[in-house]
Nucleic acid binder design. Structure first.
Lengths: 224, 224
DNA sequence: GTCTATAAAGGGATAGAC
DNA sequence: GTCTATCCCTTTATAGAC
């Protein structure tokens, strides 16, 4: 993201007006909480400490506000996941997947409202806004495609698993957390660990044990 | 829902006005496609072949329309899942989970728009509507809680898996399909089978002993 | 049971004063 | 850069004719 920052517009130049970002902060929070259509420009303006008309000094329309917010949201989670993966170094793909899951979840719940709003309202914004922001989302999805393809190539993923479906199931399990996760009740790392464990090894007890494998029965309850 | 119609309430009594259901049909389709706030009563009326004012002969408010639609959606998927489970009879819990997944996905994509709209817009409706419909959703969730608890009791699920998280991940993976599934491109049964396979047995090859995980494991993968 | 007409409120967007 | 004032349109909801 660093080399092509200008052409990708991933990070606004530091000269950008502070209020522009401040408005986006408020918009992201409101969109995340209430959805796109339910939030009016008057709401965003009030949350930003100004009047509705003043918004038009910073943005040309409501659609521009939401489009920029959506892009920042995807770029945020993309950046966090990529950073976590690169920091993980050369480890088994299975571990990379758990790392990516943890970074994705962290982005959703610990890095402001952009990512959460981005996920929740993307399907509800006008088609024009979707078209204008689909590119950033595709870039992020392609990163996961490559991540899973690498795992399959190295033999860390079963050959009979559809990688497209695996990715979509993962995204679903993670993004749906927006509908139930409340900070403080459950540990984010624990959630990431459980999801990684289930996705990689399954929720069922170990299947027919291979040749030299001990059967682990610890924690299993006997049939009544 | 007025009466405890057959205690299942999945289907309204035949005496109910036809137009009432017809209006709900149109509302469900529009809500599913565009979200709650983006659909006006004029839109619903036009799709129903009438004018906005006429809707008030059947419903007292937009909120009543959406609340009833939400309840029908949940009751539909609940009824389908329960029917599938009861038809499956006495089989291993692992098989029941795949059966429930298939029924849930079928309800979303093959039984009209109620279920899909119900899932997509629940988080975006006014709090009053959520409060008025949360009971039906809880009933459906409790059914899954019991299903998974039964699997754990019978030893078909690992003891170290958090059943609450497992359920939430499953719901996420299934419900998120609304954001990507297009009829005709992928087979619903195939999707259900893959999700069941991943959730139960994992996407990684059979777990290797801690030490020598670089060993080739050709032929070890069980083909379903 | 559906219509037209309309009320009352709020939506996005613009113009011009300061 | 923010304000007030306003335009024009849409929204939910109501009233009463047919």
């Amino acid at each position: 993201m660093s080399a092509r920052a200008a052409s990708r517009a991933a990070v606004p130049p530091p000269e950008a007006k502070a209020s522009r970002r401040q408005i986006l902060d408020c918009a992201a929070r409101l969109f995340r909480e209430q959805g796109y259509a339910a939030v009016s420009l008057r709401d965003i303006a009030a949350a930003s400490g100004m009047k509705a008309g003043s918004l038009y000094h910073h943005f040309v329309s409501k659609e521009e506000i939401v489009a920029e917010m959506l892009n920042i949201g995807v770029q945020t989670v993309f950046g966090e996941v990529r950073r976590a993966i690169e920091a993980a170094g050369d480890v088994p793909a299975a571990h990379l997947i758990e790392t990516a899951v943890r970074a994705h979840l962290r982005s959703i719940f610990e890095f402001g409202d952009y990512t959460g709003a981005s996920i929740r309202i993307f399907g509800h914004v006008p088609a024009r806004v979707r078209d204008a922001t689909i590119g950033e989302r595709d870039a992020y999805e392609r990163y996961w495609v490559a991540l899973l393809a690498r795992g399959a190539r190295l033999g860390d993923l079963r050959g009979d698993i559809d990688l497209t479906l695996l990715r979509l199931f993962l995204f679903g399990a993670m993004n749906w957390a927006l509908e139930w996760y409340k900070p403080g009740r459950l540990d984010l790392d624990g959630i990431a660990r459980q999801l990684g464990e289930i996705i990689l090894h399954g929720a069922a007890p170990v299947r027919a044990p291979p040749a030299n494998r001990r059967v682990r029965r610890t924690g299993q309850t006997a049939k009544p």
